[in-house]
Computed example of a mutant assay.
Amino acid sequence: MSCRVVRSCAFTAERAWGALDIANLDGTTVRLHWTDQPYVWHVNDGQEVFVVLDGEVQMHYRDGGEERQVLLGVGDLFYAAVGCEHVAHPRGAARILVVEREGSV
């Protein structure tokens, strides 16, 4: 299929952080995630762009050893550089578009 439409607000998964693979751009994945549960603290081995498409997500991250957090709403994005420790906590159900290196943690 050369084209497709994804209605992100209609997407659900069978488990928290379940994903729909949208595209692989020469080793960079674009995936739509649905979740209603927090993820785990982690550090990606590549850069990550995290875009909230539906819902709200409280993003916790560590910067210079200090824990910080920011509330992300629809249309907001969070960029995590290599080495940025972070964890996403949705407030209720959320749909998130994640762009990252294929196989990244």
Rank of each mutant, 00 (worst) to 15 (best):
G65K: 01
E85C: 08
H89F: 14
R95S: 07
N24C: 14
L53F: 12
Y61G: 07
M1T: 07
M1G: 13
E14W: 02
A16S: 15
R31A: 12
E85G: 09
E14A: 14
L72K: 12
Y39V: 05
R31I: 04
P38N: 05
G18H: 04
A10Q: 09
V82L: 10
P38F: 06
W17M: 10
C84D: 12
H33G: 04
H33L: 13
S8E: 12
G92R: 06
G27V: 03
V98K: 00
L25C: 13
V40P: 01
L25K: 09
E14P: 00
D54I: 00
G73H: 13
T28P: 01
T35N: 07
I22A: 05
G73L: 06
Y79W: 14
L25Q: 13
L32V: 05
R62W: 06
L71H: 04
V30P: 07
G46W: 09
V105H: 02
V43P: 05
C9H: 14
V99F: 05
F78R: 00
C84F: 05
L71N: 06
R101G: 02
L97A: 11
V40N: 03
P90F: 04
V49N: 04
D76F: 14
W34V: 00
F11H: 11
T12A: 11
G18R: 01
Y39F: 15
G55I: 03
R91M: 10
E56Y: 06
G18D: 08
V40L: 08
E67F: 04
M59Y: 04
R95L: 06
C3T: 10
F11G: 02
E56W: 08
D63N: 13
R31F: 00
V40H: 10
G64W: 05
T28N: 01
G83A: 12
A16R: 07
H33P: 01
A16F: 03
G64Y: 02
R7K: 09
V70Q: 06
G83M: 05
V105S: 03
M1A: 10
N24V: 13
V40K: 11
D54S: 14
F50W: 15
G65L: 07
D45T: 09
L77I: 01
D26V: 00
G27T: 08
A93D: 06
V6Y: 13
I96T: 08
V74I: 07
H42Q: 12
V40I: 14
V82E: 02
R7E: 14
D54A: 14
H60Y: 13
R91A: 08
C3R: 03
V74G: 01
S8Y: 15
C84M: 12
L20P: 07
G83H: 08
F11P: 00
V6E: 15
G46C: 12
R101H: 07
E56G: 04
Q58F: 00
